[in-house]
Design a protein around this nucleic acid. Structure first.
Lengths: 105, 105
DNA sequence: ACGAATCGTAAGTCACGACTTACGGTAAGT
DNA sequence: ACTTACCGTAAGTCGTGACTTACGATTCGT
């Protein structure tokens, strides 16, 4: 699962709500679905997508299942954006240089 | 336009190809669409989405339009992931602490 | 052992968005 | 001026994915 899956997973607003709920720590499915405007099975399906994307870790705890944000998955996406940002800045600087050279002539 | 729009924009594979093409520097629409497996109007529509999300800057250059990656837009999304990563790590450390305390008893 | 709680999966519906072709508008070339 | 190149927009089609309800599988409580 590469960073692409993480981006696709985070593109859905409902899944971002789930991520926000998990910021403070792990939660079982019921607690995540509570207060949300979609059904619990829908939340389960979203949790599946987030897990497959490497953004969530699952830990079966007796009767229920605890979901938590996986730092590694977030970090993978984070690193991709870092390289993209570097390239964008470099291209920006290069364009500014050529612009200056063009004006100096 | 917040970071959410940037995520949605980057979720599409065709739009990620466009981003990759612009990593080295600004390009006109024709050069971007060249070699891609979708029509040029489709590329135009994608460029529109990326621009609205704040990920691309447009600079009309005579006859054509130069598109370039906007560092600010990338940075906004980058900062969101940084905070998310921080929270994920903190939650992870807290869970490990409670786990250790539970075992110590 | 039996009922209740917690959760995942299957099947089916429906809206949204990623395409296409067709067209109009502006700048460059001759 | 007239054609050509470059690009955005409009309208319409079609697949994908985000929901729902219904069901089955475990685990806890009594």
């Amino acid at each position: 699962m590469a960073y692409q899956d993480a981006i696709v997973a985070l593109a859905d607003p409902t899944r971002r709500v789930i991520i926000e709920k998990l910021r403070r720590g792990p939660l079982p499915v019921g607690a995540i679905a509570a207060g949300m405007d979609v059904s619990r099975p829908a939340v389960s399906q979203h949790l599946r997508v987030l897990s497959d994307a490497g953004l969530l870790d699952v830990k079966p705890e007796g009767n229920r299942r605890l979901y938590a944000i996986a730092p590694d998955g977030v970090d993978e996406l984070r690193r991709y954006l870092d390289t993209l940002w570097d390239d964008a800045l470099a291209a920006f600087a290069r364009a500014a240089e050529e612009k200056a050279k063009g004006n100096a002539k």
